[in-house]
């Protein structure tokens, strides 16, 4: 599904604070699987996810998404691919404060120009799925951690992405909520979605749902996991 070929990512290239975050890294991510990235802090998990999700470009190397080379595409196309293919769940949830839950969920779909009523129906459906329908009109800052997390997941799903990318999704959750999150991921996997999770939480990479654990250290893959 996604293939990384000799990817290098250098931050602040050519400056004294130059930092090589990823060294010649190659990886193939299969479709319909749950892949977990793990490794110590600073090992490059987030960096790798942002490259996989077309949020950033590698300094060198190629990324092939569904047989299409995407590293050299202009921003517009990249954004278009990104919003149709990937749904992101961020560590800090990154919801917009002061705006209602349902609007937060609909936000990624706004630029696509979908009719408002179908969009609203879709967002309501997602909120129902996560037991949040009664909170649709509430402001996000009033939500509990678990509710905020589920809102963030609903938002990641609103454009029907094939791939879900989650960066440290359980960092702010207790054990029960973390389990709940992994249960949701299981359902997605059952629906045939491809899932990428970066986490140092053992609860995640030891979970039954995860098919493959990729271990990283210092910008390199030290164990690409059994496929």
């Amino acid at each position: 599904m996604i293939e990384l070929q000799n990817i290098r990512k250098v931050f602040n290239e050519g400056r004294p604070n130059e930092y090589i975050a990823l060294h010649d890294l190659s990886l193939f991510i299969a479709a319909h699987q749950v892949t977990a990235l793990t490794g110590p802090s600073g090992s490059g998990k987030t960096t790798l996810l942002s490259l996989l999700g077309c949020m950033a470009r590698p300094t060198a190397g190629r990324i092939v998404l569904q047989g299409r080379e995407i590293t050299s595409l202009p921003e517009r196309f990249l954004t278009d691919i990104r919003r149709k293919t990937f749904g992101f769940i961020f560590q800090q949830f990154n919801l917009l404060n002061g705006i209602s839950v349902i609007e937060n969920v609909m936000l990624p779909a706004y630029p696509l120009g979908e009719p408002f009523s179908t969009l609203k129906q879709k967002a309501l459906g997602l909120l129902e799925l996560f037991n949040l329908a009664h909170k649709a009109a509430a402001k996000v800052e009033w939500l509990s951690g678990g509710e905020a997390q589920r809102t963030a997941i609903a938002r990641a799903l609103v454009n029907h992405p094939e791939v879900i990318i989650a960066d440290e999704p359980t960092a702010h959750l207790d054990t029960r909520l973390s389990r709940e999150f992994m249960d949701i991921m299981r359902d997605f996997k059952a629906q045939g979605k491809t899932i990428l999770i970066a986490s140092h939480d053992p609860l995640v990479h030891e979970s039954q749902v995860v098919d493959r654990v990729v271990r990283m250290r210092d910008g390199r893959i030290i164990d690409s996991g059994a496929i």
Binding site: G98, E114, F116
Partner: peptide
């Protein structure tokens, strides 16, 4: 055409929500 109008309406919706906060 319809889509780009709908898109502007969506964006305007968000802008108004956003302005309303302050």
């Amino acid at each position: 055409m319809i889509r780009s109008i709908e898109k502007q309406r969506n964006i305007l919706d968000f802008t108004l929500s956003s302005l309303w906060r302050r």
